[in-house]
Amino acid sequence: MDDSRPIFIQIAEQLENDIIDGTLPEGSQIPSINEFAAFLRVNPATALKGVGRLVDDGFVEKRRGIGMFVTVGARDRLIQRRRAEFSAQYLRPLLVEADKLGIDVDDLAGMLAALRSERTAS
């Protein structure tokens, strides 16, 4: 949890990440609001607001009396949404910094390719 953004948004993003990387598979049960609150040491109202975002977007569903579950198809839809945001969130700041340092797009492409092969090698 950092200070720059509302905690409920950080909770929602953490849950999304867990769904995307398979920590929380589709159909699996997610922790209760009170478990989230106790684990993250946040007010239960904040935890409810964070989880509520995923419920509103249909990534998580409530089953009355049982708990909350990751919906089928949630992972693909989340990945699509993250891809749509990727350019604004990551590429634009990258370009700003690259321009500042005089790195052109071809150089950037080369650096990215080198980094990728380094990552796959390790």
Partner: peptide
């Protein structure tokens, strides 16, 4: 104190 407060507040 914080942990017990949150747990008990939830319950």
């Amino acid at each position: 104190f914080y942990d017990r407060l949150l747990e008990d507040f939830a319950a």
